[in-house]
Simulated assay, not measured.
Amino acid sequence: MTFRLAACAEMIYGELPLGERVRRIHDQGFEVELWDTRGRDIAALAATGAKFSSMSGYFGGSVIDPANAHEVLSSAEKLIPTALELGVERMVVHPAELGEGGRAVRPTHRSTGEMWLTGLRTLEKLGELGERHGIVFALENLNTILDHPGIPLARAKDTHALVKAVDHPNVKMMLDLYHAQIGEGNLIELVRGAQAEIGEIQVADVPGRFEPGTGEINYPAIAATLRAAGYTGVIGMEAGAIGGQGIAAGDAALAAFRAAFSPN
């Protein structure tokens, strides 16, 4: 049983233009994850022949804030044509709006019932939008200790609870195991408990956010758990290469990623 492996073009091969990064990832047999697609040559990216597994699915507002949740919905709808042109399967949203460097636009350190209800309703509407266009919206968990302070309802157990409550086939989790390790740990039980709601998995090692095998996470054990559970979806490496932004370092990072998730 094999997985579909993808790599985030935003985080490796940084010395190359984006289109060349995409092409290099594709040529090595990986699918491609993207972040913000605004202002980019979408036709050129599509012409690479790469398969794009995911991209950012909004550019304003907060899923859980009743004052501006409508901005998530309107911006998601504006990005749908790009997703369709690239053949993207999942559009990623976060519990609250991220600004420069992944920081919270409006830092909040306490969640409320109103946030839960707003998140539920917003995700239900995203599910309806996704159903009309054949796209899944994936809610990504984050860590608030290191990378994303001030984002409420960001833990994997919270994003899982929201997605499970929505119970819509076009709303899933983007389960980021790097973030979960920093904020929660117990990754194997997390994967087992959330499997039915997972749309895609993202990985990077801790500390450093580099490729699997460079830190403390036992990714081969997680891979074995996923195989035993019957998971055959996408696992995306959203990580930098420990050797730097050059081509050789990127190639080595992708090889290590493949090895971590290949059968013994």
Rank of each mutant, 00 (worst) to 15 (best):
M1A: 12
M1I: 07
L5C: 12
A9G: 13
E10H: 12
M11I: 00
M11N: 15
G14T: 10
E20M: 10
V22R: 13
V22K: 07
V22E: 10
R23K: 15
I25K: 01
H26A: 15
Q28F: 03
G29A: 07
E31I: 00
V32T: 13
W35P: 04
T37Y: 09
R38G: 04
G39K: 12
G39V: 12
I42A: 04
A44E: 06
A47W: 00
A47N: 01
A47S: 01
K51W: 06
F52W: 10
S56Q: 15
F59A: 09
S62M: 05
V63L: 15
K78S: 12
L79P: 02
T82K: 09
T82F: 03
L84T: 12
L86E: 09
L86Y: 10
G87D: 06
V88R: 11
M91E: 05
A96E: 05
E97V: 00
L98E: 07
E100N: 09
G102V: 07
R103D: 02
P107Q: 05
H109L: 08
E114S: 14
L117H: 13
T122M: 05
L123Q: 07
E124R: 15
E124P: 00
K125E: 08
G127W: 01
G130M: 10
E131W: 01
I135C: 10
I135H: 10
E140G: 04
E140W: 03
L142G: 11
D147C: 07
I151Q: 10
L153H: 09
A156Q: 08
H160T: 12
H160W: 11
H160G: 10
A161C: 13
A161Q: 14
V163G: 11
A165C: 06
V166Q: 09
D167I: 00
P169R: 06
N170K: 14
V171H: 03
K172N: 03
M173H: 04
M174Q: 14
D176Q: 14
Y178E: 06
H179E: 12
A180L: 08
I182W: 11
G183L: 14
E184I: 08
N186Y: 08
L187Q: 06
E189G: 03
E197F: 01
G199A: 09
V203F: 01
V203D: 01
A204V: 02
P207C: 05
G208C: 06
G208L: 02
R209L: 11
F210E: 05
F210N: 15
T214F: 10
N218I: 11
A223N: 07
A224Q: 03
A224Y: 01
R227F: 02
G233L: 08
V234Q: 05
E238C: 13
I242W: 04
G243V: 02
G244A: 11
G246P: 01
I247P: 00
A253F: 04
A255P: 03
F257K: 09
R258F: 07
A259W: 01
P263N: 08
